[in-house]
Write a protein that binds this DNA or RNA. Structure first.
Length: 197
DNA sequence: AGAGTAATAT
DNA sequence: CATATTACTC
């Protein structure tokens, strides 16, 4: 069984803003492989107008920093802070300062071009996070990495910190793993109980 | 201090 | 129910 059929957020509405038509097209294609519902524009003004008309029309916004008609960070603030929508920033340059500026202005994430398909896979978690105060969503994919890590270490050596390191996943904490590990052990116990009957 | 885990809270 | 947080131990 592959892992391509568990993604729930089919049709999640994304507004993508990038002044470069080629990049925009590429981004749209990537997003559509996950069956997101994508709206594109190459103007910041237009994006803002669309959002102001009804911000509930979108679940997530992706903004390229370099849009000629307005400051990308200004747009980030307007959308992220005032409209309270999750915003992903995007740029071609690997300038750490820009990345930090993006994050400090409220971006959920900061992608660097070229964007890889893999990086878009977990976009929906940003949306979930808005609706669900609980931070970590143990998607099938994430759980898989967890199980792989536990198996890689011997089961009796699988403690939160080691599992976390072995998983090599950003944005989750030792506590998150500990909590999941607790649940996983209960699950294993249940399984072995049933097996021994 | 920092980590692991059982218990408890949300 | 799943995940987070607490409380206790070492």
């Amino acid at each position: 069984m592959d892992d391509s059929n568990y993604l729930f957020p089919i049709g999640m509405r994304i507004l993508a803003v990038d002044h470069d038509p080629t990049c925009l097209q590429v981004l749209e294609n990537l997003l559509q492989t996950y069956q997101y519902h994508v709206t594109t524009t190459n103007e910041g003004i237009t994006a803002l107008a669309m959002l102001q008309e009804n911000k509930d029309n979108f679940d997530l916004v992706i903004i390229d920093v370099h849009i000629p008609d307005m400051d990308g960070f200004k747009l980030l603030e307007l959308v992220g802070v005032e409209m309270n929508l999750p915003v992903i920033m995007l740029s071609a340059c690997h300038d750490t300062k820009l990345v930090m500026k993006g994050i400090s202005h409220g971006a959920c994430d900061y992608l660097l071009k070229p964007v890889r398909l893999e990086e878009l896979k977990n976009l929906w978690q940003h949306v979930i996070r808005r609706k669900n105060p609980r931070g970590v969503v143990w998607s099938v994919e994430l759980h898989r990495k967890f199980v792989a890590a536990v198996n890689h270490l011997a089961i009796d050596k699988a403690v939160p910190k080691k599992v976390l390191n072995t998983m090599n996943v950003e944005n989750i904490t030792r506590e998150d793993v500990a909590s999941h590990l607790q649940k996983y052990r209960l699950y294993l116990k249940r399984i072995s109980c049933i097996a021994n009957l």
